[in-house]
């Protein structure tokens, strides 16, 4: 029997809104230790992994592992119907066939909303994603997620040249990180320097650079990650010309969300 319950409806709303932009379906795996979600986009250049430990839920009961593929757009639609203070219960019975029930309970309105989702896709074995080693990356940038969102917003408002998928070039050099996008009639560049000030010790921008690196990414992937990054105060970006970039935000001590994004080849 599976029956996790949580009150962080806004949290799941944000996750699903961010993910459903890019990924059609996701593989959900509930185990005794918590929830692991994985998805890969249709062009197979971006992958997302979300881990939410059992302690993140207000109540967590899962006496045997359960894997399911679910459609993210449908889930995002259902969550849009929920109030931010609803209590969510996820339920799959022992003799579960191919559906899972999400119940949204509004204590204030005395209203209960129920959605059954059919399993989609293979529901099978999760992807084999190795634990990434920071030491393998040429540069690691840590910055407040609000700052990262601001940069993505500027780039996406400017960088749509109309005739092809907008891209962003991220370069790390001399303890600074530069984001560059080309628009219809010009270019937009944001340069962030390393900062760690006494008055804002919790909001530093830290740049660890072994060697200079410059990579091209589709802006749509960055935008999706920037939406997901609202889950955390800080984002970490691992860059290498040999490996998929890893964009990560840690969710307190309760888990993380990671995007693995393969850069374009010049």
């Amino acid at each position: 029997m599976l029956e996790p319950r949580l009150v962080q409806t806004t949290f799941f709303k944000n996750v699903l809104e961010a993910l459903s932009d890019l990924f059609i379906e996701a593989h959900f795996e509930f185990s005794r230790t918590g929830l692991e979600l994985q998805a890969i986009d249709t062009s197979r250049v971006a992958l997302v992994a979300l881990v939410l430990r059992a302690e993140a839920f207000n109540h967590y009961l899962c006496d045997r592992g359960l894997s399911m593929g679910l459609n993210l757009a449908d889930m995002a639609k259902a969550f849009r119907c929920a109030n931010n203070d609803d209590i969510i219960t996820i339920k799959a019975e022992e003799d579960w066939t191919d559906t899972v029930t999400f119940t949204f309970e509004s204590p204030e309105d005395g209203e209960i909303l129920e959605f059954d989702f059919d399993f989609v896709g293979s529901n099978g074995v999760p992807l084999e994603i190795p634990e990434y080693q920071e030491s393998e990356y040429q540069a690691i940038v840590r910055m407040p997620s609000a700052k990262f969102m601001r940069i993505c917003k500027k780039l996406s408002s400017f960088g749509d040249s109309g005739d092809r998928d907008p891209v962003v070039i991220i370069s790390v050099y001399k303890e600074r990180v530069r984001s560059f996008a080309r628009g219809k009639t010009g270019t937009s560049t944001t340069v962030c320097l390393q900062t760690q000030t006494v008055d804002k010790p919790k909001e530093p921008t830290l740049i660890e650079m072994k060697e200079e690196v410059s990579l091209i990414f589709d802006l749509k992937y960055m935008n999706s990650f920037s939406k997901a990054s609202t889950l955390s105060d800080q984002v970490t970006i691992n860059l290498s010309s040999e490996l998929p970039a890893v964009f990560e935000c840690k969710i307190a001590e309760l888990g993380y969300i990671r995007y693995y994004i393969s850069p374009r080849k010049e």
Partner: peptide
């Protein structure tokens, strides 16, 4: 732009 590298190049999938 040249084709983006696909994740299969890095990780093994079914």
């Amino acid at each position: 732009w040249k084709t983006q590298l696909r994740m299969e190049a890095f990780y093994s999938f079914n």
